[in-house]
Design a protein around this nucleic acid. Sequence first.
RNA 1: GGGCGGUUAGCUCAGUUGGUAGAGCACCGGCUUUACACGCCGGCUGUCACAGGUUCGAAUCCUGUACCGCCCACCA
Length: 869
Amino acid sequence: MSRGFDLTHPVHVPDKPALEGLESKWQARWDADGVYRFDRTRPREEVFAIDTPPPTVSGSLHVGHVFSYTHTDVVARFWRMRGRAVFYPMGWDDNGLPTERRVQNYFGVRCDPSLPYDPSFEPPAASTGSGAPRAGSRGEKPGKQPVSVSRPNFVELCARLTAEDEKAFEALWRHLGLSVDWSLSYATIGRRAQHVSQLSFLRLWRRGLAYQIEAPTLWDIDFRTAVAQAELEDRELPGAYHRISFEAPGGAVFIETTRPELIPACVALVAHPGDERYRPLFGTEVTSPLFGVRVPVKAHELADPEKGSGLAMICTFGDVTDVVWWRSLSLPVRAIIQANGTLRPIDWGAGEWTSTNAARAQQAYDQLANLSASKARTKIVELLKESGDLTGEPRPITHAVKFYEKGDRPLEIITSRQWFIKTMMFREALTTRARELRWHPAYMQARLENWIGGLAGDWCISRQRFFGVPFPLWYPVLADGTRDYDHPIAASDERLPVDPSTDVPEGFRPEQRDRPGGFAGDPDVMDTWATSSLTPQIAGGWLDDPDLFGRVFPMTVRPQAHDIIRTWLFSTLLRSHLEMDSLPWTNAAISGWVLDPDRKKMSKSKGNVVTPLGLLEEHGSDGVRYWAASGRAGADTAFDTGQMRVGRRLAIKLLNASRFVLSNPAPTGEVTAALDRGLLTGMARLVRDATADFEDYNYARVLERCESQFWFFCDDYLELVKARRYGDQGPAGAGSANTALLAALSVLLRLFAPFLPFVTEEVWSWWRAGSIHRAAWPTPGEVLPFAAEDDRAVEALQLAAAVLGEIRKKKSEEQRPLKTAVARVVVRVPEAQRHLLADAEADLRAAGLIQDLVVETAEALAVHVELAA
RNA sequence: GGGCGGUUAGCUCAGUUGGUAGAGCACCGGCUUUACACGCCGGCUGUCACAGGUUCGAAUCCUGUACCGCCCACCA
């Protein structure tokens, strides 16, 4: 009877097995042997493809990364053992603002896209030899005037710095034991990513799904770029309601505003159509204070009679509601906030701005011009007080204000030319897609549907930044020097990727750049999500490896955290819908956050980060992975070094228990003993449950069950059969125990392998050939050396363990050594169970050192123990 | 304001179709036991947030409330 766990392979068990050094030993071996290499000859249905989240390399890895990446790795390892070809790439998100900021500080440079490329440029503060101290300290070198460099030079510096970061990240991932195929790595600023981003953009543009328009856009005044709805966050700020009078035909009317500095930008007042107080004013004009601008009073459903005075000031533009009103009421534009957040100078006599008293308006406005919005606010309050147009003191409130999530000052709304991808018209289709996707956990689907339902406009993808994928476009420069935005010149597909700031469009010469009759490159780059939304296409080789792409797309799973459902998950779904008319993946596995002891998300901004490498070294990678894998999909999990210690102990226990099982290689034999059959039946059930749970991404439950079975195996089963295995009941009994022990060990190691890849590999290497991570996932059938599950044997094992427990308890109560013999045990069991005890009696006597075992019949189980003197 | 989670032992959390509340950690006590002192054995610990309802029976199903957290919102 060979079930694959006979000892045909030479067995080498170390005398003192230990965890130390397993990480470096095995990661080197796995690499050398290509254990995790993707087999690209396998058909799509045998592939398990993972759309790995590319970590932002300009930050540092923290414990949250270790947590969620472990979840993915555990699942990947399971499916690999199930026989799937696992496509598990790593990406690096080096594209975008975080890298830009870091490069600026690190090298002391500033990007100026108008400069030409300098091939021999060296940065002033360069000290980037390998091993250079990471600037993760955010250590800005103070006092130095940044040196201006061209965009290509700047991008080179970004690539240089991120290359260093990526090495450090890879080393950490390897130490953690991620079963990534490192030959599949990509970078979101890499050539392939640029190619995919640019081509996909051009394809959408040709289909009319990408368009540019000059319109009010959310704008960060510090980064001086447009931002998208998905990048907003609300922050509670102190503010104040200012009650301000406008002059109306029948006397003053009052508005309340938190932004009085925008009074010069006022284009109308608005009230609810049913608001009796203001109904007489609809259709009339009122005059603004200080500036004497006549503006109409309009009615609109969105105006809330309960808010402020019920009469709202519409400015161009104070907030997104202004934009809604401005659009639907077809109002004119009087924009005053500039791209840098200050109020632009205005000539009130020039006709653009008509005032009933231009001189007074000019006099007032000149005191505001070139001030930031907040300074202008302070100033205008003074002016309004002097003029008597401010009623009472400003009333302090706190209110939510929209910020760019990476920004420091409130967003403004500024009219500018931007590129958009159409999303509004696909809301219904995307909701359907969201429902086709299998979510783990299921309730996360609501997050996405919520977001789609709340979308306010198309997706703005252009950013006025430098380190990103440029738009592959140029514009003709007209005779008067202006750009003809209506007739973009696109790069041909074969030339992609291109950088329009250095490359020249077909049919032009370099010297025609920015000249009348010539061309001008599109100065913008794409939103980082416009590239990240294509990770399945980038990683899968959409453009340059169609054979690969056919085998991995749509991918099997997107693992990611819940905070970027609205950005990364949504945008990937959108791009795949538009480009492939398909879901990008069939499953979304959402991981939670790591919470610190105060139940707050652990993040560097809160200063409570623990270095991941330090954790891995202290608790062992397996120990840390154990903690991570105990966090269920989607659930936020407390940072708990105690759990890591438990994981480490489990790994050590695996070493020692395995050593016991393997260090006395007596012959195996037919599994006849009840306890052995009970054990293996339990193992078969464990395998069945674990497999089902794993298939449902419920890895945490698998770990819990395996662990519990393993401790039972060690504490009870092992003790019960130990004597028999040593031969006390003859060779047949020993052979039965040996077979069961080896079978159970083989199964347990493989069940634990996805969670504890290092220790299980180590033990596997003592007695089996090849990597455990390429071994077949156990099946319920393989572990049963007999035809069917044996319920009776399972009961016998449980009963024997219960009696053994009572004996231990007695010894503990009497504070006697465990080796104390037991003079007499009376076991009272229900009649139906007497035979079970008979099956287990010999093992029980030996394990319990029982001299006299008496079995009586009773209603319920009861055990009476008398210790020997 | 809308939506989604959560509330179980001192702590971290399990609890699959309703059927006598569980684990680990911590704590207390004991034990060198031929795999393991990086160990082993045993013990203590609960108004399952609250209030109703369904049911022979509810931590579990339904309704409502409170608190915590997250997501979203057109906060003048």
